[in-house]
Design a protein around this nucleic acid. Structure first.
Length: 437
RNA sequence: UCCUCAGUAGCUCAAUGGCAGAGCACUCGGCUGUUAACCGAGGGGUUGUAGGUUCGACUCCUACCUGAGGAGCCA
């Protein structure tokens, strides 16, 4: 008995097939049973008619509870009332595993309950759709870089020192010599591999021990980080808009069904095509001042500070494409940012803010290439110079201008799916106060 | 760390300081085209914890616990 997957059922109309899966839901009308079967690929309704099946099958169909595992044989045909929809006329049904009373009912549930049952919640239609979109996004991310001459060079997860201080890092006590930390970015290592391969990317889990408790934060999330030798800030911005547009297009192309389940307004996604607006920090500051004067923002924006969440939301709401805010004050950015030669108080960096209030999905820029400047910056930030000896070597042995960015996968999934919270974008989210399941 | 809100049946919620309730889920019965199916019956409660006010507290007060949303910080 070869298994047929429901997603392929259209190819088997009129021929007997075997489905293996789980009972999603059941309705009955006397001697007629309607079983919704899911097998991971899709769902379909199976019809059990008492007069057409043997006693064991009828009894099993009556006994089967929600989420019981079942093997069903039958003949698929078109739904009598819905063209293009298929149903299965059941011949036999075998109960593989009777499910105990299933906690997730077809009615509504609260967040805490669903999060406690995340291992089961994944079986529901909505979660299935989200994680399929996630899969497509990740595939598109890899394809984009693989097809554009990038080499995958993954960076370590255990790292000896912080990129930007140790306050938000997870400490690991294992290595004899010194303290280790879980990676918060692969960027410094990307700069080393970029000198070897030219165009590189890394893609892995990232850890941030921030006491953040918002819909945009996870303590463990996945980040893809490209780095390009000889790239200037303009090249980085162009790469970012090409990359984001490609990923969005791939999702639109292959995940229509899932976006429909999620009730996503796809016209919003269809607008995501290059070029994206470029907004200098100074202009962003002016926009925020005007918004505050017009009573559209609660707090006055202070020039020189970083954009707050409400600020980002306001700015992105003014555009129907992702907006690239560039050239922030160097003082509020990481030590390795290249200063703008025309305005040394500004850093050659860029944040990409997704539309519809989804906030920052990409952060990046041009890296400082001068050894003298980096030494000054490390001292100014109070960082231990010896921790960066290998990083400084990159400036000693053939330094070169270069840049790149990092994109948080979960924020991207959240945006493309139109979700309220990133916790649904990863199979098992890790958050402040959430380690199980 | 700070601000706001919420904890009542397995789940989602109701109950004006005066008898602890409904829908879903579950069990039993009915129904040959159901779509969160429907109809009838049944079991199911330390109202987050501790204290206080009151003749009487799910309801009011205090503290704590847990969760959610937000700020800061970030992708």
């Amino acid at each position: 008995m070869k298994q047929t997957y429901i997603a392929e059922i259209g190819k088997h109309i009129g021929a007997e097939v075997t489905l293996r899966g789980w009972l999603y839901n059941k309705r009955s009308s006397g001697k007629l049973g309607f079983l919704e079967i899911r097998d991971g690929s899709a769902m379909m309704q199976a019809i059990v008619s008492k007069k057409d099946v043997d006693e064991a099958t009828w009894e099993a169909s009556e006994r089967a509870t929600q989420e019981s595992s079942v093997i069903v044989t039958g003949v698929p045909r078109e739904h009598p009332k819905k063209p293009g929809v298929y149903e299965l006329d059941v011949k036999t049904l075998e109960l593989v595993g009777l499910a105990s009373e299933y906690p997730i009912t077809p009615k509504e549930h609260g967040v805490e309950f669903l999060m406690d049952h995340r291992h089961l919640w994944l079986r529901s239609k909505r979660q299935h759709a989200i994680l399929r979109v996630r899969h497509t996004i990740i595939k598109a991310v890899r394809d984009f870089f693989d097809n554009n001459g990038f080499t995958l060079c993954d960076t370590p997860i255990f790292t000896p020192a912080a990129c930007e201080g140790t306050t938000n890092l997870f400490e690991v006590n294992y290595f004899d010599e010194e303290k280790a930390y879980l990676s918060q970015s692969g960027q410094l290592y990307n700069e080393a591999t970029a000198a070897a391969f030219g165009k590189v990317y890394c893609f892995g889990p990232t850890f941030r021990a921030e006491k953040s408790k918002t819909r945009r934060h996870l303590t463990e999330f996945w980040m893809v980080e490209p780095e390009v030798a000889y790239a200037k800030l303009d090249d980085v911005m162009e790469l970012a808009e090409q990359f984001v547009s490609y990923v969005v297009a791939r999702v639109l192309e292959s995940r229509q069904e899932e976006l429909k389940v999620l009730e996503r307004d796809i016209t919003k996604l269809e607008a995501i095509i290059p070029p994206f607006p470029r907004l200098p920090y100074d202009d962003a500051a002016k926009m925020l001042d005007e918004a505050f004067a017009a009573g559209k923002l609660e707090n006055k924006f202070e020039y020189g500070s970083d954009l707050g969440s409400p600020d980002e939301t306001y700015i992105s709401s003014q555009f129907d494409k992702p907006v690239m805010v560039h050239r922030y004050p160097a003082a509020i950015k990481a030590f390795y940012m290249e200063p703008d030669p025309l305005r040394p108080d500004l850093a050659l960096c860029v944040d990409v803010l997704a539309p519809e209030g989804y906030g920052e999905v990409i952060g990046g820029g041009e890296r400082a290439s001068s050894l003298e400047y980096l030494l000054k910056q490390i001292a100014a930030h109070g960082l231990p110079e010896e921790a960066f000896d290998w990083y400084l070597d990159l400036r000693k042995y053939g330094t070169f201008p270069h840049g790149g960015f990092g994109m948080g996968i979960e924020r991207c999934v959240s945006w493309l799916c139109g979700l309220e919270h990133v916790r649904e974008t990863i199979p098992f989210p890790r958050m402040l106060y959430r380690l199980k399941p």
